[in-house]
Simulated assay, not measured.
Amino acid sequence: MTWQKSSYCGEGESCLHVATDAALTPTIQLTESADPTQAILSTTPHAFTSLLRTLKETPSRG
């Protein structure tokens, strides 16, 4: 798999990485760069799109 790092990630930060798995098409893989176990979450493109839509619509709290 070829992992793509989030464009919102700065140098040295913990970041979300996204990949597609040709063997599991259509499956989207997610992992977090600071996770020493390198756990991978698998989801469908539809569910991933819904997650992104929800995150964009939710006001940030910081």
Score class of each variant (00 low, 15 high):
Gly62Ala: 07
Lys56Asn: 13
Ser42Lys: 15
Ser6Gln: 08
Lys5Arg: 13
Leu16Thr: 03
Thr43Cys: 06
His46Val: 05
Ala39Trp: 11
Gly62Thr: 01
Thr27Cys: 01
Leu41Ile: 14
Cys9Asp: 03
Cys15Gln: 10
Asp21Cys: 03
Thr25Gly: 08
Thr27Trp: 00
Thr49Gly: 06
Glu13Pro: 01
Gly10Glu: 11
Thr37Pro: 08
His17Tyr: 12
Pro36His: 01
Trp3Asp: 08
Gln4Thr: 06
Ala39His: 14
Pro45Lys: 01
Pro59Gln: 01
Leu41Ser: 08
Gln29Phe: 05
Arg53Asn: 14
Glu57Arg: 13
Thr54His: 13
Ser14Met: 07
Thr44Leu: 09
Leu16Arg: 09
Ile28Met: 09
Asp21Met: 07
Pro59Gly: 01
Ser60Gln: 10
Asp21Leu: 02
Leu51Phe: 15
Arg61Met: 06
Thr49Lys: 12
His46Gly: 04
Ala23Ser: 02
Thr37Gln: 15
His17Ser: 12
Met1Val: 10
Lys56Asp: 02
Leu16Ser: 05
His17Arg: 14
Ile40Arg: 01
Tyr8Asn: 12
Glu11Gln: 13
Glu57Tyr: 07
Gly10Ile: 00
Ile40Ser: 01
Ser42Pro: 01
Thr49Cys: 08
Gly62Lys: 06
Thr2Phe: 05
Cys9Leu: 12
Thr25Tyr: 03
Leu51Ile: 06
Leu51Thr: 06
Ala23Val: 11
Leu41Asn: 09
Ser42Leu: 05
Ser6Phe: 03
Gln38Pro: 00
Leu16Lys: 05
Thr37Ser: 15
Ala34Tyr: 10
Ser50Gln: 12
Thr27Ile: 00
Thr37Lys: 15
Val18Ser: 04
Thr2Lys: 12
Thr2Cys: 02
Ser14Glu: 10
Leu30Val: 01
Thr54Asn: 12
Ala47Glu: 15
Asp35Pro: 08
Ala19His: 03
Lys56Val: 10
Cys9Lys: 02
Thr37Met: 12
Leu24Asp: 13
Lys56Met: 08
Ala23Leu: 03
Arg61Tyr: 09
Ala19Ile: 02
Gln29Pro: 00
Gly10Phe: 07
Thr2Asn: 12
Leu55Ala: 15
Ile40Asp: 00
Ile28Asp: 05
Ile28Cys: 06
Ser14Lys: 09
Pro36Ala: 07
Thr25Arg: 04
Pro36Arg: 14
Thr2Val: 12
Lys56Ile: 09
Ala19Lys: 03
Thr20Gly: 04
Tyr8Gly: 07
Ser6Tyr: 05
Ser50Ala: 14
Thr31Cys: 11
Trp3His: 10
Phe48Cys: 10
Leu41Trp: 12
Leu55Cys: 14
Leu30Trp: 11
Asp35Lys: 03
Leu24Asn: 10
Arg61Trp: 10
Ala22Gln: 08
Pro45Asp: 05
Gly62Glu: 03
Ser60Met: 07
Gln4Lys: 09
Ser50Lys: 15
